[in-house]
Each structure stands twice: as structure tokens, then as C-alpha cells.
Write a protein that binds this DNA or RNA. Structure first.
Length: 598
RNA sequence: GGGGACGUAGCUCAAUCGGUUAGAGUACCGGCCUGUCACGCCGGUGGUUGCGGGUUCGAGUCCCGUCGUCCUCGCCA
């Protein structure tokens, strides 16, 4: 009879004395008990080697012919073993493992829990996401995934301590809150008590944290779960976590300094990495001009250069025409060291066309006129002038884009990022950057109205907002982004603490006085009772922790992520609910019931 | 909502131009093996080719639809 499969002997004698990553040569001779999962079993006919795995590591345990149960052990069985720690002979040491100098010679084996044949081998790195998500509890047994979750825990806790050292108070804000008219689509929760009314899950704790400032909390932070019902991406989940913070009686630089300290201390504590501070500051305009986008990858050069002067005196009709039409002509010089093949340039052209460009002009720089399609417009001093304007050296490959400013920025920005990856320049460093002074409003052609570039609570650079008849497109806000290596990590702003300015912004956004009172009355009223000037920032922790491990997908930093269609394959959410449940919350489904027999 | 890639054994993949009984590795089962370390050797089981329809003498392969996963555009104040 298999007595070992039942735990009747004693309630406590199976419990571990060490975990599976603990034992070393210095423990030889000790009698120990280990608990863990069977990672692999090697049956040599009379002697069995079992790799026992837990969160801490793998220890090889050795069983002899007297342990008949050893032959019955399968992958992922949960077992308890008791035995003596023995040294391995020199030729049997496994240098790949910290525990590789010892074995545990098993005297007692107990199966705590059996396992069906697992759908995949835990050690197998190459398993379809669908399978991994369905059996996430097995997927999470992998050392890699456990490393990710442990790293995230260490990282976030280090951040918490860093904020507390700077006198920040962690305050929790509601998950059940009210829907907001602006921004992302809300997740709604029907109210049982109030028929026909709904809570919304917060897209961010924005208004609560501002109200905490009005309340005099002075410095607030929170590890906050946020919800947005929008389509997913590799770096976007419908629920995500932010390190959200807000502080009173401050301006931009105070927020920047706070975060620089927090990030420096966090990287030091959690990763033993030194992050250089202060981070460079760029205005939005500077970022667009130099890098073509508002989240610049600062790890390499090849910056955009304005060529208006050269282009307007050029005989090249495309360039001259672009300038005359009020557009831009810009270029980037790719150093000769990064030789671009004909094929490379074709790939770049395809990329440019994919982004809306009509074509891609290029020129191999040379004082004698160079070569490439643009060479015939680089006769005589025109060549040297162009090289000077571009900061290009002999032999550099120069790429040009002419047209509408937004197009020129976007295309050259994408080409630059592509080249950075192509030449392996976009790696290996932590280049944080502040991007400031974003536009206040953006006009949506489709809806025919103005939207906040950041959010409606962002302060304008000028409290008077250009007077009675402002040019909305040129108004600058006090919004800022934290950027790391080409990723937008977080964004924030100095907030509006004046009720009159807040009302004016709402009005510009097309929210009339009545709607303002109905939806934001509590905010406007709060601002009327002595609101301190305040500012804050929220950083996406899924992205930051993923980036800090070099992962390009945030799912590997989440214990239970959702698929691209926002489902949880493990627990099969979302799901239908019983009709009674709907009735209770006063909901009737508009979706027809499945056809009979379907 | 649009575009693209993929879907074949428990897992990872193969299968020529539409043509024999859909194969391999691994896992699993059985046998052998006392120093392996994702042990090795021998043998075996395992398939509604996601699902539904169509074209064809014949469909894993072609067509239509549908479901699912991933990437991406829109979207994400």
C-alpha cells in the first residue's frame, strides 16, 4: 500500500527545514526536509535523481531502490523529502546550479499532491501564449516568471520607501466612482440600490488626488489600479497599475526633483544601478524638432535638422515647393560608419511611405557634390552648404523629408528610431528625459471640436490663457511627460487650482455651465475653498518594471494578464451572468440569447 | 471597427503543385539501466488538421463564413 500518499503520520513532520535554493557544501551532514515540485526525474534503474523545485531554486535529491515510490513520481508532483545533505564527488558537481555541490540522500519520501500530465513542460521556454494563459498557475511556476514577479515586488516596495522618505502619504481612493465625460471609455458597474445609475471604475485617481491636495494632505502617493475600456496592445492592458502622486505648493521642477530622487533610489535599491540625475529637460517643441516625436530615445544621435534655408534657395522643386507652401524640409545625417546598403534605403523608403510619405530623398554627402538622387542639386558650394546645415561629414548618408510639419516630424522620427534599432544603438542605457510644455488643446477634425492634449485639469502656461479671443492651437500647457528610452513612462501636469480658469477650460472643451455643475460641480466647489497650487505625475508601473528587466511586453510582469481581446483565459472572464443577477441590478441585455441548439 | 500573421498529437513543429495509411522531436505508457542533471537505449499509445459550409474524382492544402491567439492602425483626456 502506498502509505506515503496520505499524510496521516504526523501533522508536522513533512514541513520543510530549508527551501530548494538554500543548501550548500557547508550544510553537508545536516538532516533536512525539503518541499517542492518534481521538476525532472531521472531513473537509472535502482537509483533515482529528482530535481526538486520551488521559488528559491532547484535541489537534486537522490533516492535508492528502497524508495519504491520514486518510480511513481511524475512531473509536477508536490513532495516532501527528508534526508541527509551529502557532498557530490568532484566529477559530479553541477556548476550551473548554486546547489550543485550537494545532494540530499532521501530517507523519507512523501507525496503531498499528485499531478496530471502537465499541458507543457515547465522548463520549456517556447510555449504558446494561449496555453500559458489558460494554465497560468503552471506558467507562473517557471523561474523566469517568478523572477519577474519578485522583481516587481522589490521594485515597487523600493519606490514606496523612497516616497515615504520624502514625506509622501499613501492614500487609497475609490474603485467605484463616477463616469467622466472626457477621456477613455469607462468600465461601468450598475448600481443595485439606484436603478438606472452606474458607477465607473477609475481611469486614474486624478480628481481624488487633487481633492486630497485641497484637503491639505500636501504630499500624496498611491499604487493605483486604473481601468480603461480600450483596445489592447503589447504595452497596454485594460487594467493597469500606476504609481500616482501629487504635491502642493510646487511647480514643475519640484515634481521633477522628487521623481528623480525616487527613481535614482529605486534603481539603486532594487537593481544596484546608478541612474544619473537630473534628467535632461526638453520642451515638447524641442523634442519634436530634434527627434520627431514627444517620447525621444536619447540613447543615440542622428537628430533631425531643419533645412528650410537651404531648401528655399534650392532648385529642387519638391523642397522649394514645400517651403513655399508653409511646410518643412528636414533631414538626418546617418554617419558613414553605419553604412546603409541599397536594400537598407529601400526598406527605409517603404517605412516612410507606410507613414504617409510620398517618397524618400537621400544623398551621400560629399563636398564634391556627393551621390544619390539629390546630387544634381548639390553642385558647387551647394554641397558644402548642405553638409554644414546637416552637420554631415564626407560619406554620411543623408535622408530628407519635405511636406507638412506633422508628416516630416513623424516620418523622420520613425526613420531615426528604426536606424537606432538597425545599428544596435537603442540599447543598454537608462536615458530618462522630461518633456515639458505640451500644447494645451488639440483640434479633432472628426468631431469638430477641441480636446485637452493632456486632460482638462491641466494648467495653462499663462493663467489668462491669451485673453478673450485666444488662438487655442498655440496655447501652451504645463503638462509634462517622463520618457525613458523612447517609451512614455508617465505624464502629469501642474493643475488648475483656480475655479474660474477651470470653468474657462471646460467651456472651451464644449462643456456648458450646466454640465460643468452636474459632472464636475464637486471639483469646482472644492477649488473655491482655498485650493493650494499643486502638481503631480503618474508613472505606469507595468511598463517601468518591464523595461527595467528589458522586457518588451508588460504581460510578463503581470501575474494574471488579459488577452488582446480583453479576456482572462484562465477563469474565462468576462462571462454571462444569471438572469436574476441582471434583474437585481436593473439591467436587461440587448444581446439576443443564443439560438436553440447552437 | 480596419489591416496582417497564425491555428495539424498533451506541447513545439513538418507535410512539394490539391493525390498512398497526416510525420518528427518531446511528453505519456511499457521494458532495460546505480551518478545523472531537460540522463540514455529499445518498444508502444496518441489526430474530428479550431469549428461550419463550399469547390473537386480527391482538401491539412483552394474558396466563403465563423471562433480563438498574437502584432498593428484607429482608439488609449
Amino acid at each position: 500500500m502506498d502509505a506515503s500518499s496520505t499524510s496521516t503520520a504526523s501533522r508536522s513532520d513533512w514541513r520543510r527545514t530549508h527551501h530548494c535554493g538554500a543548501l550548500r557544501k557547508s550544510d553537508v551532514g545536516a538532516r533536512v526536509t525539503l518541499n517542492g515540485w518534481v521538476d525532472a526525474r531521472r531513473d537509472h534503474g535502482g537509483i533515482y535523481f529528482v530535481d526538486l523545485r520551488d521559488r528559491y531554486g532547484i535541489t537534486q535529491v537522490v533516492l535508492g531502490p528502497e524508495q519504491a515510490e520514486a518510480a511513481k513520481l511524475g512531473a509536477e508532483f508536490t513532495v516532501s523529502v527528508t534526508g541527509k545533505v551529502v557532498a557530490r564527488d568532484a566529477q559530479n558537481v553541477n556548476p550551473e546550479r548554486p546547489t550543485g555541490e550537494i545532494d540530499v540522500q532521501v530517507e523519507r519520501l512523501e507525496i503531498l499532491s499528485r499531478s496530471e500530465q502537465p499541458p507543457f513542460t515547465i522548463a520549456d521556454e517556447n510555449v504558446a501564449l494561449e496555453t500559458r494563459f489558460t494554465y497560468r498557475y503552471l506558467d507562473l511556476r517557471r523561474p523566469q516568471m517568478q523572477r519577474n514577479l519578485m522583481h516587481r515586488s522589490r521594485f515597487i516596495n523600493a519606490m514606496r520607501r523612497a516616497f515615504e522618505r520624502q514625506d509622501f502619504v499613501e492614500v487609497e481612493t475609490p474603485i467605484l466612482t463616477r463616469a467622466t465625460p472626457e477621456g477613455a471609455r469607462d468600465y461601468l458597474v450598475p448600481s443595485r440600490v439606484h436603478p438606472g445609475k452606474f458607477y465607473a471604475l477609475p481611469q486614474s485617481p486624478q480628481l481624488f488626488k487633487q481633492i486630497l491636495m485641497v484637503a491639505g494632505m500636501d504630499r500624496y502617493f498611491q499604487v493605483a489600479r486604473c481601468f480603461r475600456d480600450e483596445d489592447l496592445r503589447a504595452d497596454r492592458q485594460p487594467e493597469f497599475t500606476q504609481l500616482d502622486m501629487e504635491m502642493s505648493f510646487v511647480e514643475e521642477e519640484d515634481v521633477f526633483a522628487t521623481w528623480e530622487r525616487v527613481l535614482q533610489e529605486t534603481f539603486r535599491e532594487a537593481m544596484q544601478l546608478e541612474v544619473a540625475i537630473p534628467f535632461p529637460r526638453l520642451t515638447w517643441k524641442q523634442s519634436m524638432e530634434r527627434f520627431g516625436n514627444d517620447k525621444p530615445d536619447m540613447r543615440f544621435g542622428m537628430e533631425l535638422v531643419d533645412l528650410a534655408a537651404w531648401a528655399s534657395s534650392s532648385e529642387f522643386a519638391v523642397f522649394k515647393g514645400a517651403i513655399d507652401a508653409g511646410g518643412r524640409v528636414m533631414g538626418i545625417a546617418v554617419p558613414a560608419a553605419h553604412a546603409l546598403s541599397r536594400k537598407d534605403i529601400e526598406a527605409l523608403e517603404t517605412l516612410a511611405k507606410g507613414s504617409g510619405a510620398k517618397g524618400l530623398a537621400y544623398w551621400k554627402a560629399g563636398a564634391a557634390g556627393g551621390s544619390g538622387p539629390l546630387a544634381r542639386f548639390c553642385v558647387g558650394e551647394r554641397a558644402t552648404l548642405l553638409m554644414q546645415a546637416l552637420g554631415a561629414a564626407e560619406g554620411d548618408t543623408c535622408l530628407f523629408m519635405a511636406g507638412k510639419q506633422s508628416l516630416v516630424w513623424r516620418v523622420l522620427g520613425e526613420l531615426r528610431n528604426h536606424l537606432g534599432k538597425r545599428f544596435g544603438l537603442a540599447q543598454g542605457a537608462w536615458r530618462f528625459t522630461w518633456v515639458t510644455s505640451f500644447p494645451m488643446f488639440e483640434f479633432d477634425e472628426g468631431e469638430g471640436r477641441w480636446f485637452s492634449a493632456h486632460h482638462p485639469f491641466t494648467a495653462p502656461a499663462d493663467w489668462e490663457m491669451g485673453g478673450a479671443n485666444p488662438d487655442l492651437a498655440s496655447l501652451v500647457s504645463r503638462a509634462y511627460d517622463l520618457v525613458l528610452n523612447g517609451w512614455e513612462l508617465g505624464s502629469g501636469s501642474v493643475r488648475i487650482h483656480r475655479s474660474d480658469v477651470q470653468q474657462k477650460v471646460f467651456t472651451i472643451l464644449g462643456i456648458g455651465p450646466e454640465e460643468q455643475q452636474k459632472k464636475f460641480g464637486f471639483l469646482l466647489e472644492a477649488l473655491s475653498y482655498g485650493a493650494p497650487p499643486h502638481a503631480g505625475l503618474a508613472v505606469g508601473l507595468d511598463r517601468l518594471t518591464a523595461l527595467s528587466l528589458g522586457l518588451d511586453n508588460i504581460r510578463d510582469m503581470l501575474a494574471f494578464p488579459k488577452t488582446t481581446s480583453a479576456t482572462d483565459l484562465m477563469c474565462a472572464a468576462p462571462s454571462e451572468v444569471a438572469p436574476e443577477q441582471l434583474f437585481e441590478v436593473h439591467i436587461r441585455s440587448a444581446v439576443p440569447p443564443p439560438a436553440p441548439g447552437a
